[in-house]
Each structure stands twice: as C-alpha cells, then as structure tokens.
Simulated scan of single mutants.
Amino acid sequence: MKYWPVLLLSLLPLWAQALEVGERLAPWTLLDQFDQAFTLDNQTQTLLVARSMDAAKLVGAALQDQPKGYLEARHAVFVADIQRMPRLIAKMFAVPAMRDYPYRVMLDRDGRVAPRYPGSVDKVLWLQLKDGQLVGKHEYATAAQLREALEKALP
C-alpha cells in the first residue's frame, strides 16, 4: 500500500509532458540529412514526428512520387527520431541514404526534440500549428491516410 504514493509521484512528470492544444511549442534547432540547420519558427504549420523506422517509412511512402519541396510548400517539417540508431550505422549508411530523399528530414540524433511530443512509436504524429501554437494533433498509421492529409494541407 505504501508503494502507491511513490508510483503516482513517479508518473507525475509523464502527465506534465502531455502537449495540449493551445500550447506554444518551444523553439528548437536540428540538423537535416545535409547537416543544414533548421529552427522551428512561427512559419511552420505542420510538424510530422516519426519515432521509429517504421513510422519514418510511412512518411517516405506518403511522399513517394512527390516533387522536391513538397513539404516546404505546405510549411511542413519532418522530424525523425534516430537516437536509438547506432551512431556508426547512422553515419555510414542511414544518413547518406537519406540524402537521396526529395524532402528534408530533421534528424533528432540525441532525443532532444521528439520526446517533447508524446505519441505512438509506430505511427506518424501530425502536429498542426498556427503562429507557433498547437491547434490540433493527429496520428497516422498508414501512408495513404498521411498522403490524404498532406494533400488537404494545400500550400
């Protein structure tokens, strides 16, 4: 019985991290696959977050056959959480392969950004922003759903 207060107190930080509609997102800066810096600002309207390789593959499939600059035209930014990927694998294989993508991938190598936005590991988290504030959030489990949502987000 005396373990309950300890358990509840240990879970309190997890509840505090929940991102709520109306909250302003704290700015951050990450490097993309070309080592070019990007800073989250008020111009970003959509933030896509993938916490796993499977989720990142959903984004890739949704963007298949789209022209270069497709995400940028929609003021969308894609963040891939690669903190669990071994650094040597990332450096020698994964990141060089990402340079062939027709879209930018902001690489969260140290887990500084993606954990701020809680969601399922196997889904793509879509955060809809307006002037830096969260106005909506969704999760997509299929490339078709994500592609449809991106099409609706006209430039």
Rank of each mutant, 00 (worst) to 15 (best):
A76C: 03
Y70M: 06
A61Q: 14
R99N: 07
A73L: 04
L129K: 00
Q45H: 12
M53P: 02
I82Y: 05
P115Y: 00
D108P: 04
D131L: 00
L107M: 13
F78Y: 13
T39W: 10
G69K: 05
K57V: 09
Y101P: 12
L146D: 08
A55E: 02
H138K: 11
T142L: 09
V95N: 03
N42H: 13
Y70K: 10
Q133K: 12
G119P: 03
D108M: 06
D41F: 05
L125K: 15
H138S: 09
A144D: 15
A97Y: 07
K57G: 03
G60S: 06
L125G: 07
M92R: 13
L127N: 01
F78P: 02
Y117N: 00
A80V: 03
M85H: 01
L107H: 06
V79C: 05
F78A: 07
E72D: 08
D100T: 13
A94P: 01
H75P: 01
G136E: 11
I82F: 08
A97R: 14
L125F: 02
D122S: 12
M98D: 09
Q43T: 15
Q145G: 15
L40F: 05
D131Y: 01
P118E: 01
A149H: 15
R112V: 09
A62Y: 09
F78K: 08
A149Q: 15
K91A: 13
V121W: 11
R116L: 03
V77D: 01
Q83A: 15
D110M: 05
P86C: 07
A97D: 12
R116S: 08
T46N: 13
R74G: 06
A143G: 14
L40P: 08
G119F: 01
D65W: 12
L107P: 00
D54W: 00
L146V: 11
P115G: 02
V79N: 04
P115S: 04
S52I: 05
A50H: 04
S120N: 10
Q36Y: 04
R112N: 07
I89A: 12
E72Q: 14
Q145P: 02
T46Q: 14
V135T: 13
R74V: 09
Q45I: 01
R74Q: 10
D100Q: 15
R87E: 03
L134M: 02
V95G: 03
V113E: 06
G136H: 08
A149C: 09
R116P: 00
K130F: 00
T46R: 13
L63P: 14
A56V: 02
Y103M: 06
T44I: 14
D54S: 08
V49S: 05
T39V: 08
D100C: 04
L146F: 09
A114W: 04
S52E: 07
M53C: 01
L48N: 08
F93A: 13
D108L: 06
L58W: 01
R51W: 11
Q128I: 06
V79K: 11
L150Q: 09
K123L: 06
R87N: 03
L129Q: 02
R84S: 12
L150E: 08
Q64K: 15
D65V: 02
K130M: 01
L146R: 10
A141E: 14
L47E: 09
D54Y: 00
P115N: 10
D35I: 02
P118R: 00
Y140I: 05
R51L: 07
A97M: 13
L63Q: 11
V113M: 06
R104D: 14
N42F: 06
Q128V: 11
Q66H: 08
D110Q: 11
L146P: 14
L47C: 07
